[in-house]
């Protein structure tokens, strides 16, 4: 699914040049599950953004299903994101004025689905994350865990090939964290999608079959046979 070769991302911070990623080579198989772990500022989120086509590397290639996202025109990159990649963010990133159902619908808008079909699929997605009764609630009326469920429903409603999660439990308490992780793992198994997650939580990292540790822009991958 993913083939990263020599991916470097260089930022200019004042007079200093910082390599967030320094020649990363990484392969991620179709349907695989990878956890990316590392210290703050180590390049975890940058790597996730490269995989999600949200950013382009300074050098190197990010191949997704044989297509180099790094050199893809913006319009096609947007299409790849719209059709194939679901995102879950640490801060949920829900639109505060829209209801849970409408928030989920926003992921279907780029696919050109009409109103009724969009509403139906959004309702199904919310039902699958246990929020079938909360369709009309705006984010402010939902708990943190419920908001993250809405975000997960939004990521999965378009039936993506890849689910990218950036610290999805970072803003949740412990019980909520486990609940969300169980949900994500269950959905990964159920939908057979590729699941890549960034976390600094070691307990979560230990549960992953494959762990990519990133330090100073360099990635080391370890397999976890026990997971």
């Amino acid at each position: 699914m993913y083939q990263l070769s020599g991916v470097t991302k260089r930022y200019q911070r004042g007079k200093k040049t910082v390599d967030a990623l320094a020649g990363v080579d990484l392969t991620i198989e179709d349907g695989g599950r990878l956890v990316i772990q590392g210290p703050t500022g180590g390049g975890k989120s940058t790597l996730l953004q490269m995989l999600g086509g949200l950013d382009r590397p300074t050098s190197g290639t990010v191949e997704f299903d044989g297509v180099d996202l790094a050199s893809l025109p913006e319009a096609r990159l947007t299409k790849v994101r719209a059709e194939n990649i679901g995102f879950v963010f640490q801060s949920f990133n829900l639109i505060p004025t829209l209801t849970a159902q409408e928030n989920v619908e926003t992921a279907l808008v780029p696919l050109g689905l009409k109103g009724a079909a969009r509403r139906e699929r959004a309702a199904e997605a919310l039902d699958s994350v246990g929020l079938g009764e909360r369709l009309g609630h705006v984010p402010g009326e939902l708990s943190g865990g419920q908001q993250q469920r809405v975000a997960i429903a939004r990521a999965l409603v378009k039936r993506p090939k890849v689910l990218l999660a950036d610290e999805p439990t970072g803003n949740l308490d412990e019980s909520m964290r486990d609940e969300i992780m169980e949900l994500l793992e269950g959905l990964w198994k159920e939908h057979g999608l590729t699941f890549i997650m960034v976390t600094h939580d070691s307990s979560i990292a230990r549960r992953a079959p494959r762990l990519a540790t990133i330090r100073k822009g360099r990635v080391t991958v370890t397999e976890n046979a026990a997971a």
Binding site: T78, F87, P110
Partner: peptide, 16 residues
């Protein structure tokens, strides 16, 4: 910005 960044991440075109 976060709202619009999220929408773009979801596949919304700049024009939309």
């Amino acid at each position: 910005v976060r709202e619009f960044g999220t929408l773009k991440a979801l596949g919304w075109k700049s024009g939309r």
